[in-house]
Design a protein around this nucleic acid. Structure first.
Length: 740
DNA sequence: AGCACGCCGACT
DNA sequence: GTCGGCGTGCTC
């Protein structure tokens, strides 16, 4: 027999995104059988170097693809899923994100998976299912209201229900365990049922005013098509009702809805609002979940069992087979941008996801970001305005208090104190804001001017009096005992300068000795449950003074508050960052929205040393939209984002000269590209130059041509990482929130 | 990012 | 003598 040319045995390979801080995917070989079964989007266990990791198949290489002999190919350890658990569209979204944010694909892919699946746990976990054993147990639960409720619900499900469903129905696990102890029910592990329950809309009259109706109809025009909408609605104008009615229609078509809210926005109130309207499976994805709860919620979304997915930032990467609508509420909120590691912006990712998925995306806010207004301006987003407040509610009035000329007591204008007294006399509540935690921001020596500074940072220590006297650095967390004399001149008269919430609390107690001051900040609300207590007090019609930081500004309703005081808005107005006024205006409007939601008219007092500030006056005399319009013009003139695109490079090491020299060297390389319209700021030392003993410098790149900017930065950034000394930490921030 | 190997200080 | 400090090099 003549020799036949022997074709080499095919080598079956997959390209895997491995969870390491490296920019490439890695190829692994597998058997013909495994190759046939393997799907893009399934997990594989692989050995990587000396470690064992769980990666995701990004690509099946054709068997005849050329073999790269520069590395030795390893076999996968195991194929973990027999199907794709991340669908093609989400994989596409992840690939795009890794490119856009210049972050390693393996780590980006991890953000789409719940912890247990990242750890390689099997997909089909058994779910805890509760079954009723005794259906004549009424007498045994008579003494506990919670147990009665749980018993009633268990009775409705003769074959048993999963713990998730019971929890969603308001039955907590502890109650079930109590019933189990009494022998009323039992817990068994059963394979989960991922079939979606039928979607039912609660029977309630749908009320929408003409504006709301128009908004709903506009969005519903886009069924299987991408369109971005900005729902620009005043506080109290019924944005949520618009969301709910659009959702109702989309759910009726058998599609899933993804709803993203800010980190602190996922309150029990928000959840119950959705639950009472839609009787379907709602998957909740937020940071407070334990690993198995999170897995279950994720699986409900991924299998299509859940019709609604309600989550925070990272939920934007949840696979959903029938996604038909994305809603992102409070779209201006900072928490949508991840501020470390993989620095993505969920709002921008949401827009791209809508585009991939061919479904509408609704961004809503009472104070939309300037970025979103710019998208409206250039036709990439359609604006839907809601201007009517429901019922007789009036918009609160803003007042500027000039601190330069005002008579003051303890740094609070006398006029404001009088107004506060009037409200308290009328048994109304007051909200006082100060965006500074602690007792006072400075401890100074009366004799020589020495100031207490953190030994690790270029920052003053903040004086705290609670829970005991101490100095605390808010930048690195260092805690120091309170000195009893000046370390520089031994003088014993040390005094505090400026006000934190702690000091203001003291002063308010002094000014209004007959009224309770309720302080809400990280120092006073850290204990679990204390927020609930505060919340209960707020809901009662009793005169009270609420004192807090930004924590108070968001989401919560304070029906009895008729006066809001912001003691110091200047730190926001005078900040060097170009977005500072935007943030301050949003804060003012959001805070104002807390006041006078009922028929009582609210007033908002702003204390400032800059009463003539142009943008502040536009906000006070006109409204947020006028402010936004003016800001857009200013940004355009100054050629700032969103009219140019920014990329920020941070460089951190123990040697500041090394940082600046390194950045300078690479800035010069980038400047060589003549066809890139580029402006480079810096490198300059970071505003907090020394932080926890390390120095930071940064540099900002600005260009009007986003595509070209990203194109050049891609190669340049890789070269920079290659060239960096190992002791140096470099981070890239695409579309940074702050430029300084 | 891990996790190795690799070469210099204070310890049972 | 070692135990271990963290400097740098690699991972399909």
């Amino acid at each position: 027999m003549p020799d036949q040319p022997v074709s080499p045995a095919p080598i079956y390979r997959v390209r895997v995104a491995v969870p390491v801080h490296l920019f490439d995917c890695f190829d692994y070989s597998l058997s013909a059988g495994q190759y046939q079964q393997a799907e893009v989007g399934a997990r594989v266990a692989v050995s990587f170097g000396r470690q064992h990791l769980v990666g995701v198949i990004m690509e099946k290489l054709p068997p005849d693809a050329p073999l790269d002999s520069s590395f030795k190919l390893k076999d996968i350890t195991e194929l973990l899923d027999d199907r794709a658990i991340i669908d093609a569209k989400v994989l596409n979204l992840l690939n795009w994100s890794a490119q856009y944010y210049q972050f390693p694909i393996g780590e980006v892919v991890q953000s789409a998976l719940p912890t247990l699946l990242r750890q390689g746990k099997p997909y089909n976990l058994l779910a805890r299912t509760w079954k009723l054993l005794d259906d004549q147990a009424e007498a045994k639960v008579r003494r506990s209201e919670r147990q009665q409720e749980a018993y009633k619900i268990l009775k409705l499900h003769p074959v048993g229900t999963t713990e998730t469903i019971l929890n969603l129905a308001g039955v907590d696990t502890a109650t079930l365990k109590a019933l189990e102890k009494k022998g009323i029910c039992e817990c068994v592990l059963e394979a989960q049922d991922f079939s979606p329950p039928p979607v039912q809309l609660a029977q309630m009259p749908l009320t929408a005013n003409p504006e709301q109706q128009h908004a709903i109809q506009q969005v519903l025009k886009y069924k299987n098509k991408y369109q971005a909408f900005l729902l620009d609605g005043l506080t109290g104008s019924g944005k949520t009702e618009v969301y709910l009615q659009i959702m109702g229609k989309v759910l009726k078509q058998g599609k899933q809805v993804l709803v993203l809210v800010p980190e602190i926005g996922l309150t029990p109130q928000t959840i119950s609002r959705f639950q009472s309207r839609f009787h379907c499976h709602i998957a909740l994805l937020h940071s407070g979940l334990n690993d198995s709860k999170r897995l279950q919620a994720w699986q409900a979304a991924e299998t299509g069992k859940a019709s609604i997915v309600l989550g925070t930032r990272s939920a934007i990467y949840t696979p959903m087979p029938n996604l038909g609508l994305i809603i992102l509420d409070e779209e201006h909120d900072l928490s949508f941008k991840q501020q470390e590691g993989f620095r993505y912006h969920a709002r921008d990712v949401a827009l791209y996801r809508g585009h991939l998925q061919q479904c509408p995306v609704v961004l809503g806010s009472a104070t939309p970001s300037i970025d979103s207004y710019a998208l409206v301006e250039n036709g990439k987003m359609q604006v839907l305005e809601l201007n009517q407040r429901a019922g007789a509610a009036l918009m609160p009035k803003l007042h500027i208090l000039d601190l330069k000329v005002a008579q003051k007591q303890h740094g609070i204008s006398l006029h404001l104190i009088q107004e506060m007294q009037k409200r308290l006399d009328k048994k109304e509540q007051i909200l006082v804001f100060l965006n500074r935690r602690g007792y006072a921001p400075v401890l100074i020596c009366d004799s020589c001017g020495w100031q207490a500074q953190c030994p690790h940072c270029d920052a003053n220590f903040t004086v705290h009096r609670q829970p005991y006297q101490h100095l605390h650095c808010h930048h690195c967390g260092t805690i120091h005992r309170m000195p009893d004399h000046c370390p520089s001149c031994n003088h014993t008269e040390l005094k505090t300068l400026g006000m934190g919430t702690g000091k203001v609390e003291e002063q308010l107690n002094e000014l209004f000795p007959n009224h309770e001051v309720i302080r809400v900040d990280r120092d006073s609300t850290s204990r679990v449950g204390s927020w609930q207590k505060i919340y209960d007090k707020i809901q009662k019609s009793e005169p009270a003074i609420l004192l807090g930081t930004q924590m108070l500004a968001k989401g919560h309703h304070f029906p009895y508050v008729t006066l809001v005081a912001i003691l110091d808005i200047d730190s926001g107005l005078l900040s060097v960052d170009f977005r500072a006024t935007e943030r301050t205006a949003q804060l003012i409007v959001q805070v104002a929205g807390r006041a006078g939601r009922g028929e009582r008219k609210g007033d908002v007092y702003l204390q400032t040393l800059r009463p003539d500030h142009a943008l502040l006056n536009t906000l006070v005399n006109e409204n947020y939209r006028a402010f936004a319009k003016q800001t857009l013009v200013q940004r355009q003139i100054a050629r700032m984002p969103p009219y140019r695109y920014a990329v920020m490079i941070r460089c951190e090491s123990r040697d500041q000269n090394l940082n600046t020299e390194f950045l300078q060297k690479h800035a010069a390389l980038l400047r060589q590209y003549q066809d890139l319209d580029l402006e480079i700021w810096g490198p300059i030392p970071a505003p907090m130059e020394r932080k926890a003993g390390r120095y930071q410098s940064h540099m900002v790149l600005l260009s009007a041509d986003r595509a070209r900017l990203h194109y050049y930065v891609r190669a340049w950034w890789q070269a920079m990482l290659q060239d960096k000394p190992s002791s140096m930490k470099l981070t890239l921030d695409v579309d940074p929130q702050e430029l300084s």
